[in-house]
Amino acid sequence: MAGLTNRRGIRWWRGAVALAAGLYFLVPLACSVLFTVDVPGRGFTLGAYTGILSASGFTSSLLLTLELAAATIVLVLGLLVPALLAARLGAPRLRPLLEVVCSLPLVVPSVALVAGYSGVLRWGPQYLSRTPLFETFVAVQNADFPVVLVLAYSVMALPLAYRALDAGMRAVDVRTLMEAARSCGASPVRAVFQAVLPNLRGALMNASFLTLALVLGEYTVGALLGFRPFAVWIVGIGGSQAQLSVAVSVLSLLLTWALLLVFAAASRPRTRTPRRARAKAAPALVPQESAT
């Protein structure tokens, strides 16, 4: 009897917690939506949403951010995947070191990071004005595609991408997969691409998504270095057109969710099993176990 009451109590609590969490997330969202569609003096209007596309800077800042995100994902995966694989296969003792290095950005606030960056960007050209590196400093700050932001975002994304990839590599036996592929005649590079990476799809997708979400929402570094990615544009537009800026925020939230769903769908293991085999597989599995 006590157990029953107990379970009911737990169920009641679950509902309460879900409700409280739901309210916490949904009420501000609903208020934001209401704020964008209910304009004082004009009543219900979707003007804020229709105005987004024509607002100056929307398309360019969103495109810039997506480009930066793509470059960041490529850089982060390009750095981390080989490093993690090498540590796992060749030097397991380096794994803790790798973990500490990848976690460092968590303890350095982005304001401190950007202070360091702007210091170097100011100092560099002065001292290197007579060398070819001067041009490099100019190029990384090109407003059309600020490479320096990609570098900063990559550092900031390391902890997230590291966790996602490490969890994925724990779930498969990377060493055995490598060795099995090599004994089947695959060179080390082919073994990585054909046997290991396909089984890390989920982890690669997770790492990419977390990086994308980080870049979409990053404000501090972009603003303080004087560039205009999406988040900076939203804040900027908020000063002059409050409704428009909130409408953009609501849309970008929906966009992030949509991307999350796309990534989740893409990272699911492939089930291209023919229906014939699938129908046979399910009931046959248990008795076959003892038959082998």
Binding site: D173, T176, A180, S183, A186, P269
Partner: peptide, 26 residues
């Protein structure tokens, strides 16, 4: 040298036939 490992070493993303044919593909 063909090798069979102690732990299950089939490639999880490939079917039985594709696993067997992996070396031939290489």
């Amino acid at each position: 040298a063909g090798m069979v490992f102690q732990s299950y070493s089939l490639f999880p993303h490939l079917t039985a036939a594709d696993n067997v044919a992996f070396g031939l593909r290489m």
